[in-house]
Simulated assay, not measured.
Amino acid sequence: MNRTVRRLLVGLQSFGKTQWALVAVLVLLGAALWMPKLALMHQRFTYVVTFDITQSMNVEDMTLNGEHISRLRYALAATRDAVRRMPCGSRVGWSVFTGSRALLLLQPIEVCEHYDALLASLDGIDGRMRWANASRIATGGIYSAIQQARQIGEHTAVVFITDGQEAPPRPASETSILGVTPGAVKGWLIGVGGDQPQRIPKSDSEGNPDGFWSASDVVQTNELSGAQAGAPSHEELSQLRDPYLQSLSGQTGFEYLRLTTPASLSRALLDPRFAESERVATDVRWYAALAAWLVLTGVFLPADRLARVMGVGLPTRQRVRKPARERARQSSAPLRPPPHNTADVPTRDSHPAAF
């Protein structure tokens, strides 16, 4: 037994750098194949994203990649980008709002495992799903979205995307939402739309264009009971109701964000205040595979080629050039005869004397 161990130790001592590298590669590849998932602490998020699909969201006053698109399409594009950036373990679901309630379409599901399903279902959301022309955002949409989040789970947050246009308009005297305790459910109120009033496209029940809404088609603010006399309103036109949405965020305890770029929604949804820390089974096998590749590359790839792959140049010896004045002086100096070698000239002492 001792002799076997001694031979093994002698054999290991004879290993060179290449042999040890191959052993390390085999170990790393084995880990890449059979290493189980590790439970690591991660931050995850759970959201129900509610889209306002009323007809004012069809106003094309947003620009994406040089193209004028509707507010709803812009919101969907921003959400698609946000899902792509969310960490694994997070869950997202979809809801739509019109009339006086939000309808849950998809319960929150994990973003990495169900990524394709999330994007496919997101592509199916449009204004043709509308079941009413009214738009009661505060007492209808936001209220029901909060109730949905409560039913789904404790850590579920709300993302409500709208332009803020109520139809009929909400009386100015209403400054709270009954049944909603500010801060009881976390959430984001996202405003989307331009600052200039635009005509609202009208569509039939099948989603076909049918002109635009006129002033006589909608309820104006000054027509509400108890409204103060003043300049006539133009509820047939639509723009982002930014101040109104900010007031709603205070009534609900939500954070408010005006959607100016798709990336701004991603940053909002990754806000650490909305994160929940938990242990998530994480696949780390690719780390071992990457380490094996690096070892093989470092051992078997020639140094000059490795430097080119890594974008690093090897140091080279450079000739030191003499100053121009010194070079000119050397080139103009007269040629001198080679030094006289006295050892090659016969002398008297180099021959024996004649007797």
Rank of each mutant, 00 (worst) to 15 (best):
1 M>R: 06
1 M>Q: 09
3 R>M: 09
3 R>V: 11
4 T>G: 09
6 R>S: 15
6 R>F: 15
11 G>H: 10
14 S>L: 12
15 F>K: 11
16 G>V: 13
16 G>S: 10
19 Q>V: 15
21 A>K: 02
21 A>W: 09
29 L>G: 12
32 A>E: 06
33 L>M: 06
34 W>S: 12
38 L>M: 12
42 H>M: 13
43 Q>D: 15
46 T>G: 08
46 T>Y: 14
46 T>A: 14
47 Y>L: 13
48 V>P: 14
51 F>D: 14
52 D>N: 13
56 S>G: 11
56 S>V: 04
58 N>P: 07
59 V>Y: 07
61 D>E: 08
62 M>C: 09
62 M>Y: 10
63 T>V: 15
68 H>N: 13
69 I>C: 07
70 S>R: 10
72 L>W: 10
78 A>S: 14
80 R>V: 12
83 V>E: 12
83 V>F: 03
84 R>P: 00
86 M>W: 03
87 P>T: 14
87 P>W: 14
89 G>Y: 03
91 R>M: 05
92 V>L: 14
94 W>D: 05
95 S>N: 07
98 T>H: 08
99 G>M: 02
99 G>N: 03
101 R>S: 15
104 L>N: 06
104 L>A: 06
105 L>T: 05
106 L>D: 09
106 L>P: 11
106 L>V: 14
112 C>S: 01
115 Y>W: 11
118 L>R: 00
119 L>H: 12
124 G>Q: 12
126 D>K: 05
129 M>K: 08
130 R>A: 14
131 W>S: 14
131 W>Y: 10
132 A>Y: 06
134 A>H: 12
135 S>I: 01
136 R>Y: 08
137 I>K: 03
140 G>T: 04
140 G>V: 04
141 G>I: 08
142 I>S: 05
144 S>M: 07
145 A>E: 02
147 Q>S: 03
149 A>V: 03
149 A>P: 00
149 A>D: 02
156 T>D: 00
161 I>Q: 07
164 G>P: 01
168 P>K: 01
172 A>R: 13
176 S>D: 02
182 P>G: 00
183 G>R: 04
184 A>C: 05
186 K>W: 02
186 K>R: 08
190 I>S: 05
197 P>N: 07
200 I>H: 02
200 I>N: 00
202 K>W: 01
203 S>D: 10
203 S>A: 14
207 G>K: 01
209 P>L: 07
222 N>F: 09
223 E>S: 12
226 G>M: 08
227 A>H: 04
227 A>D: 11
237 L>C: 10
241 R>Y: 12
246 Q>S: 03
247 S>N: 09
249 S>M: 07
250 G>W: 15
251 Q>I: 09
255 E>P: 00
256 Y>H: 01
260 T>W: 05
262 P>R: 12
266 S>F: 12
273 R>T: 13
273 R>I: 06
283 D>V: 00
284 V>G: 03
286 W>T: 04
287 Y>K: 13
293 W>A: 06
293 W>S: 02
296 L>G: 00
296 L>E: 00
296 L>T: 01
298 G>H: 09
298 G>N: 06
300 F>C: 01
303 A>N: 06
303 A>D: 06
303 A>I: 10
310 M>P: 01
314 L>P: 00
314 L>S: 02
318 Q>A: 02
320 V>Y: 02
322 K>G: 01
327 R>E: 01
333 A>F: 04
334 P>D: 09
337 P>D: 11
337 P>K: 13
340 H>N: 05
340 H>D: 06
343 A>I: 06
346 P>T: 08
346 P>K: 11
352 P>Y: 04
